[in-house]
């Protein structure tokens, strides 16, 4: 199997405080990798280093074939990113959003047009294409944002709590999109606080106080800790 993310002693410290302490892990191509941890465990800091907007204090990571320490620009070109906090520009319509995000990733207008048609068709949004994104329900926005993050066919998509505030049905639909992308060979790196979502992942890692305390398939982890749900695994570790 091909490795798309490989972290080696990835470390970030702010003064005396070590937010991320010597992370070592690998993620395979097409894998859905769950990145879990309580708030303040260092998840966000680790993710920021992996997506190239924060430099490691020590160690390094290879993402999509490039080092985050000194090839951040190339890393950025080859990954997609979506966060819960911001999905799409509210005051632009679907088409304008796709044109904008396609544009900043360097797609030409012809392929943007093709992709736009495909996205709108896939999500069944033909009737809403000219509406401002503001007027769409949150679940639709997030599905749309995920499709937008995939526009430039990145090798890896980083999803930062992508389904926050969304109802279970929509969340299920969202995960169908994730599976579809993973099946086509895109690596998915996802952080979440929902344990049912963690169950959907191929493998999960759980961070506690800057270190990865557990990393395996959900099944093995439950067995290892002798509990019936990931929730219990999480609680045991986080304490």
């Amino acid at each position: 199997m091909e490795t798309t993310i490989k972290a080696t002693n990835l470390t970030k410290s702010f003064g005396d405080f070590t937010a991320v302490d010597k992370l070592n892990f690998e993620v395979e191509k097409g894998e859905i990798f769950g990145f879990l941890g309580a708030n303040g465990a260092g998840k966000t800091t680790a993710m920021k280093m992996l997506i190239g907007i924060s430099k490691p204090s020590a160690g390094d990571a290879v993402v999509a074939g490039y080092q985050v320490s000194n090839q951040a620009e190339l890393v950025k070109k080859n990954i997609g990113y979506m966060s819960q906090k911001f999905a799409l520009y509210d005051d632009l319509n679907i088409k304008e959003n796709i044109q904008f995000f396609g544009g900043i990733y360097g797609l030409d207008s012809k392929s943007i047009e093709v992709k736009y048609n495909r996205v709108v068709e896939n999500l069944g949004l033909q009737d809403y294409a000219k509406q401002l994104v503001r007027s769409l329900p949150l679940g639709w926005k997030q599905k749309l944002a995920f499709s937008v993050a995939l526009l430039h066919q990145p090798k890896i998509v980083f999803l930062d709590e992508p389904t926050g505030g969304v109802d279970p049905v929509t969340r299920r639909q969202f995960w169908e999109l994730i599976y579809e992308a993973a099946n086509q060979g895109t690596t998915i790196f996802v952080t979440t606080h929902y344990m049912d979502e963690a169950e959907y992942c191929d493998r999960i890692s759980i961070m506690v106080e800057g270190e990865i305390k557990a990393l395996d398939t959900p099944k093995v982890l439950k067995k290892e800790f002798g509990v019936s749900s990931l929730n219990d695994v999480f609680l045991k570790l986080a304490r």
Partner: peptide, 13 residues
């Protein structure tokens, strides 16, 4: 504030 700056910084821009 809305978080799009993060998206822009992660992009190749």
């Amino acid at each position: 504030e809305v978080g799009s700056m993060e998206i822009l910084l992660v992009s190749p821009l």
